[in-house]
Design a protein around this nucleic acid. Sequence first.
DNA 1: CGTTTAGTTGACCGTGCTCAAGGGGCGTGG
DNA 2: CCACGCCCCTTGAGCACGGTCAACTAAACG
Lengths: 246, 246
Amino acid sequence: MSPTRFDGTQTQVVLRRLGAFRPLSGPAAAALDKAIRERILRLGGGQDLISEGDRPDRIRVVLSGWLARYKALEDGRRQIVNFVLPGEICDPYSYLLARMDHSIGTLTPIVYSEIERDRFEELVASDRTLAEAVWCEWLASNSIQREWTLNIGRRVALERVAHLLCEVFERLRSIGQVDGNSCTFPITQMDLADATGLSVVHLNRTLQELRAAGLIVLRERTLTIGDLDALESAGLFTPAYLHYAG
Amino acid sequence: MSPTRFDGTQTQVVLRRLGAFRPLSGPAAAALDKAIRERILRLGGGQDLISEGDRPDRIRVVLSGWLARYKALEDGRRQIVNFVLPGEICDPYSYLLARMDHSIGTLTPIVYSEIERDRFEELVASDRTLAEAVWCEWLASNSIQREWTLNIGRRVALERVAHLLCEVFERLRSIGQVDGNSCTFPITQMDLADATGLSVVHLNRTLQELRAAGLIVLRERTLTIGDLDALESAGLFTPAYLHYAG
DNA sequence: CGTTTAGTTGACCGTGCTCAAGGGGCGTGG
DNA sequence: CCACGCCCCTTGAGCACGGTCAACTAAACG
């Protein structure tokens, strides 16, 4: 499925993602689905959805494509602090703070939906399962954030990259976007380097190490994991921090 | 003030911290203060308040002393992913998830208050300013989390340590716990190393570099900043991400 | 008074960075 | 249609930042 097409079924990914934390009541799911469909938008790759310093005033949910939360230093150094994958809410409640403390940019072209603040608050106020699902989704995102800090602070390059690949694969699996042991992996090595705190050169060499060990095949924007157990072991990966109910 | 004494005024630090995000209504502040006073507890240094894998089921707020959120790898590597300072809420809403994804341990003896989940939910449901303040406090904690990821991923050792010292100083200032250009700094170099993703040896040398440059004096659990502007500049520190309303 | 914990220093080494160059794919314009 | 430029990936060489190992000191503590 092309990331820029919208075929009318993609709103399902949001319900599926939230449903991984709390089963949504029928009415809540219907109301959320309706709200999402009212304002579907697109954005090309390499664009900022919102930038550090902006005033956040609405909610956005990703229907397809990948984004990155990132922070940049003045001299150009950049750190991606998390990915935002399909089904995820970009910025729940962030309008409570005056300014964005980080940017959210597209890594690929995306399709997303915008929901105004008031509308969003009505939605979560109207149904407890929905409110809790949104909360959990956000708490899980914070948990991933912490795991990334551990990843960058205490894992060596090979572990670090392996861990990230395992995480992305699991996150995509939870929304039904893996096919056997393969998934789309539409980002550049420079993005991966900025996500792992490595230089592009060293990231490249680390990927080749993983390839040479038969753990992954990564080409043409597709990741295939040769031996998931081995990759998880190489990355010291355990999925508990993703907080999926299953 | 000894971190283990409770003199009856320390509940103020919580109101002060929350008030930095939203002015609390009088009744909300009074109700919160009352709830905090009902169950005051103590814990020695080097203890876990809650451990990874535990089921969270209540709220705790820190009245005095420092804690760390941390994650550990099986082989002993440890990463502190954030500090929890006086006035902060350890785990708002984390009981919505089944298991803790990280541990929270004391770096010093602490005084804290426990509030049961139901009681806490009543409190925040009863007053919008309180609910928003709690939300903001949590959002700000997430923001610090992101800054730490940037810090560890993209700043070199000297910048990294300088940044952390600036941040802690600002956080303590916001709760009135700095004295001029000095503040208590009650943690070991090993804790600092685990917070910055450095080895103890290299952290020690980095501190000495900062000392030699006249930027800091750090001894006997007290940090004195010689030249705050210079330290902030060395750490590429800007306080916007702390989200203080002032 | 012995033991433990925290801080410090030296020496050596390795992981990962920098700089530099080249190749391949792809879109664009001449 | 081909040329060119751009982006992304890859590779080599050299080096530096920061890690590891080890030993020693000083303070805290029982």
